[in-house]
Design a protein around this nucleic acid. Structure first.
Length: 361
DNA sequence: AACATTCTCAACCGCGGTGAT
DNA sequence: TATCACCGCGGTTGAGAATGT
């Protein structure tokens, strides 16, 4: 472990804060405000670095901090928000007054650990090749967030172009995440958290990108089996098998979760296409991190999506899709999926965006 | 009671973004 | 435009507490 660049001075203290230090910091900030954190330690008479002071204040000493266990409502909110934004703890914390990002992060991570320790036996075999899944919760991941928590373990974002091994890992991860979001009778376990408590009874959007069909082959997109022409059934990805199982069980609400969160998708759309043929109706990030210049807009869209997921759906959507971005993406809901769409997608020339059947009601 | 294991959570680290120069 | 300092964030660590054997 190193030191902060701002903590290189010999006399900087580290480790737990003493009550005396807390008192000094509180006294200083309540009378002067913190302004420039780098100046706080010196002015407050503390042998700490500014960063440490800031952390202590934000995570512990703030007067509006809320301690104690999370309420059921807070849990639901965290899970719902995490399903939407992924590991953006500060963002999630901004929706929970008095809670810190650190606290939420700790809560989430400990919850995941808990789930790892209680894997359903049936699912264990499916993940034997996945080192990535070993570090997270292949058998019982947090609801809906999918690989979100694990994205640093995953191959580069665009699924296409990954190696065969990566696909195996992805298969396992995706399957497990899907399974975990199924009701117990489908998932084979009974201690899975609710799919997405607090969310409407459907999963949020999810997306597959089939644009780059490397030597290893792209992950096949997952249309519902009932909508797949029989001659294409042999292309089924394991993921599709799970998905179609859910469909067959008449549980269309249990759609697969987001891939790396909404932030990476940057989509906001009106899915109610009238002619049923319009496929390339929108654009998104074609891949995960390629459109930094749109960050601001994505943030706005993210907020909108959040509101929508949380029951404040606004029907108007004025996003103007970039045609160039749109060309690799297909979108439909169940009503408008056609075999021509499907074939275009199967050809590997398009990305795929799925939308849950109830997302645009 | 003693020891081992697991959990909790405060704190640290490193990185990216931003604004000043 | 480049550099620097600072801030904020997400990931990770580790000490102490709680729980299990």
């Amino acid at each position: 472990m190193g030191h902060h660049s701002c903590c290189n001075q010999q006399k900087v203290k580290r480790g737990l804060w003493s009550p005396e230090e807390d008192e000094k910091l509180i006294r200083y900030i309540t009378t002067h405000g913190y302004g420039c954190w780098s100046e706080v330690p010196e002015k407050a008479g503390l042998q700490r670095c500014g960063k440490s002071c800031r952390l202590r204040w934000i995570n512990y000493l703030r007067p509006d901090i809320r301690r104690g266990r999370f309420t059921a409502e807070e849990e639901k909110l965290i899970i719902s928000l995490h399903a939407i934004v992924g590991n953006r703890w500060a963002h999630i914390a901004s929706h929970l007054p008095g809670r810190t990002d650190n606290e939420i992060k700790n809560y989430w991570n400990s919850w995941i650990k808990k789930k790892i320790r209680k894997p359903p036996a049936a699912a264990a075999a499916a993940t034997t090749t996945s080192s990535a899944s070993a570090t997270t919760s292949p058998n019982n991941p947090p609801p809906c967030s999918t690989a979100t928590s694990d994205h640093h373990h995953l191959p580069p974002p665009a699924f296409g172009g990954a190696t065969a091994d990566h696909h195996l890992q992805l298969d396992a991860i995706i399957n497990q995440n899907l399974i975990s979001s199924l009701p117990p009778k489908l998932a084979g376990g009974d201690d899975s958290p609710p799919a997405v408590p607090g969310l409407p009874h459907h999963c949020p959007l999810f997306m597959f990108d089939t644009t780059t069909t490397g030597a290893g082959g792209a992950v096949s997109p997952p249309p519902p089996s009932s909508l797949i022409p029989t001659h294409l059934h042999h292309h089924h990805h394991p993921f599709i098998a799970s998905f179609t199982a859910a469909m067959a069980a008449d549980t269309p609400s249990y759609l697969p979760p987001l891939v790396d969160g909404m932030a990476t998708m940057g989509v906001a759309m009106d899915c109610s296409l009238e002619d049923g043929q319009t496929a390339a109706a929108m654009a998104a990030t074609n891949g995960y991190y390629q459109h930094h210049q749109k960050q601001q807009q994505l943030e706005i869209e993210l907020e909108e999506e959040e509101q929508r997921q949380l029951g404040h759906h606004q029907h108007e959507n004025h996003h103007q899709w970039d045609e160039e971005e749109a060309q690799h993406l297909l979108m439909w809901d169940q009503e408008v999926l056609t075999s021509s769409n499907l074939e275009a997608m199967q050809s590997g020339s398009h990305s795929l965006l799925f939308m849950g059947p109830n997302d645009h009601d």
